[in-house]
Nucleic acid binder design. Structure first.
Lengths: 209, 209
DNA sequence: TGTACATCAGTGAACGCGCGTTCACTGATGTAC
DNA sequence: TGTACATCAGTGAACGCGCGTTCACTGATGTAC
């Protein structure tokens, strides 16, 4: 064995990480293999000893967003304790945070790439579905843990709507030109999402700052 | 004048309509000028007598999505009377309808192209902002018209959240592989959006069908 | 009415560039002795 | 410890294709007389 045992897997991870950053920022089509390999500190030629094609890499990147433990919480923008009793509001606040809004490269792929996925193949959409289902589960558990539980169907429906609100709010915020409008939208979505989860009284306090 | 007066504007419209359909389906980068011109019944060469470049066409297409009267209501999937007292719930139901989910080509660009826009230039994001602001205004008026009005800030916030929920619900639904899951998500988002607008009692009736 | 003409909308071949993909080669690494 | 070697990770030139863009040309149209 001319190279240490962990060498290739480690390099492969570096390629995937580079691709993830570039896909998040520019989308699938606009990123060249040259750029991906350069981002991993390599050159073009080596790519095909790691992946069969560019679209194979794409599927693998999407799959990794949620299966790899070190990226499981990346989309939350900040550290969130998924087992905590208040995981629901924590996820909502982190997801719609300024940090997540700004950090496009390390963003949740559901915010950065949803339309790319919907135009993509089955594998991509299945990976997306897994990520979304996981997010809904976390939120649903958060609703279940509160003092006034509602029926099961309502809880699941609420969790789905909250997830869609978080994702939609971020997707739209990033597409707006006006920064203040984007901030106001994130704020409005956060309030509505927390209310949908029953994590906040319906009557709002006046805004400060 | 060798050609009738309305000829060129009419052809330009055809090119834009073809581009709109193709962009909605495949995104900006994946569509070639060949395909756009063929969709308008023309050949490649004529393009540059109508537009300066491909990205100029892109900006023009996005701008038209809302300024051209014949497309103003296309994103609503079905006909909606924006002046009606119940325009709010009408817009929500139309936006999250099965028809809008399925008709990708004639879809609202905020659902089909939000991530493309966020990666695009200022012009694209400004056009998006105009569309979004218009949608929020319609929803806000709908909230204002109901019997129990709340404070202004709450109304605007609610309208923004409802819009984000409609857009996010559709974006996510289209990215899911499982059709039933997409339907359930649309349904959950519709219920939550109607509740946020105060257009439906918080207690839900059991589902039928 | 019919013919010659000027205009210009649209054609399609050609160009150049970038990118996905391939491949013969280089050189860094651990192993054998 | 030191040297020769086998392995294979990574290199970079080359290929071919597609696409944005250009341009000389064709031919359809309305007008002049």
């Amino acid at each position: 064995m001319p190279y240490p045992a962990g060498h290739r897997p480690e390099v492969k991870k570096r390629i995937i990480a580079s691709a993830r950053r570039l896909f998040n920022r520019h989308g699938f089509q606009a990123v060249s293999l040259d750029a991906i390999m350069a981002g991993a500190g390599l050159t073009r030629g080596g790519f095909y000893s790691y992946f069969g094609s560019k679209s194979e890499l794409y599927a693998e990147v999407l799959g990794c967003f949620f299966t790899e433990p070190e990226w499981q919480s990346c989309w939350e923008g900040v550290e969130v304790d998924l087992a905590a009793r208040d995981a629901g509001p924590q996820v909502v606040r982190a997801y719609l945070s300024r940090q997540h809004y700004e950090d496009v490269e390390n963003s949740c792929p559901m915010v950065a790439l949803p339309t790319d996925v919907s135009r993509g193949d089955k594998r991509a959409r299945r990976a997306f579905e897994t990520v979304f289902a996981a997010m809904v589960s976390v939120l649903e558990r958060g609703i279940a843990a509160r003092t006034k539980p509602t029926q099961g169907r309502n809880r699941r429906d609420a969790a789905q709507a909250i997830a869609a609100l978080c994702i939609g709010g971020m997707v739209v915020a990033r597409a707006l030109e006006n920064r203040a409008a984007a901030d106001a939208l994130r704020d409005a979505c956060m309030g509505a999402a927390l209310r949908l989860g029953g994590w906040r009284p319906a009557q709002r306090r006046p805004r400060r700052g």
